[in-house]
């Protein structure tokens, strides 16, 4: 018997890392031209971004079904594990609802802790990784869930977009609407605030945005965890990771890729960081 972590595919965790830490990932759904794909299973990121930028219908995403969660939970419960299930912000997605309903369907006393992280993408990934590391030494799901909940405020994320076009088209622009201006070629930096996308700053080009991301990380040092996340430009991510190595050894910085769930909104050439400050 052990404590196992479940998250959803919007955590954008690299598959190797998830396997290594026994993290189960429940896939979101991506619909392109009426065909349903399971995020990360039926659809590779390269395929996805090619479709996104080809000018056809915008892909739409939907939360994992209650059934998908039930299946994942049941398998782990049958192996005798307790579950801590950590998910994308309830203000961005209904994933937490699916998870909660799945838990309820399995009975009153099932040992499952469902957590709304208020985060997304690699920031959610960092929380799942920290939880998995804690789970290796914990005696109960609660022993993992309580510190995870208490420390959510230490994890945050900043991402720079090439364009707000996708966020706007996808209907998720929210408070970043004010940054939509297009006369100057700004590369807006957004963050997640209270579980929602919130505008932060408007650097004038990619290089300024990159420098600002490093500064934002530096302002929050010392750090426990650090991640870099990109949509299409792997070399930008490598460059950023290298620049961030002053804050944590480069091999500890987790590089991940915006999957379709977020990729639909951040679009190509997006680049971000996720970090967890030391207490």
């Amino acid at each position: 018997m052990a404590i196992r972590i479940v998250t959803d595919s919007t955590s954008d965790l690299p598959a190797d890392l998830a396997r290594q830490l026994d993290i189960s990932i429940v896939a979101s759904n991506v619909v392109i031209d009426d065909v349903n794909y399971r995020d990360g299973i039926d659809l590779t990121p390269d395929d996805f971004y090619r479709r996104l930028t080809s000018g056809g219908n915008l892909p739409t995403t939907s939360q994992p079904s209650v059934g998908a969660f039930q299946t994942a939970y049941q398998e782990l419960l049958e192996q005798g594990h307790e579950i801590v299930s950590i998910h994308v912000s309830g203000k961005l997605s209904g994933t937490v609802n699916s998870a909660t309903q799945a838990k309820a369907a399995l009975g009153d006393d099932v040992p499952i802790e469902v957590i709304d992280s208020g985060l997304a993408s690699s920031a959610l990934g960092l929380v799942a990784v920290a939880a998995a590391q804690r789970a290796q030494e914990a005696a109960s799901g609660r022993e993992v869930a309580e510190p995870v909940r208490a420390n959510l405020g230490l994890t945050t994320t900043f991402f720079s977009l090439d364009t707000l076009e996708y966020l706007q088209k996808g209907g998720r622009i929210g408070k970043a609407q004010a940054f939509v201006g297009s006369l100057l070629s700004v590369k807006p930096i957004l963050t997640l605030l209270d579980g929602e996308v919130s505008p932060l700053e408007r650097p004038r080009n990619h290089e300024r945005a990159m420098r600002r991301l490093v500064e934002l990380a530096r302002e929050r040092a010392p750090l426990q965890q650090l991640g870099v996340v990109y949509s299409t430009e792997a070399d930008w991510a490598a460059d950023l990771r290298h620049r961030l190595s002053e804050l944590l050894p480069e091999e500890q910085i987790i590089t991940s890729r915006f999957g379709p769930a977020l990729g639909t909104y951040v679009g190509p050439k997006a680049l971000g960081i996720a970090l967890t400050s030391a207490r």
Partner: peptide
Amino acid sequence: GVAAALAFNAQ
């Protein structure tokens, strides 16, 4: 003014 306007954030 433009530089200052770009630093404005209603949030």
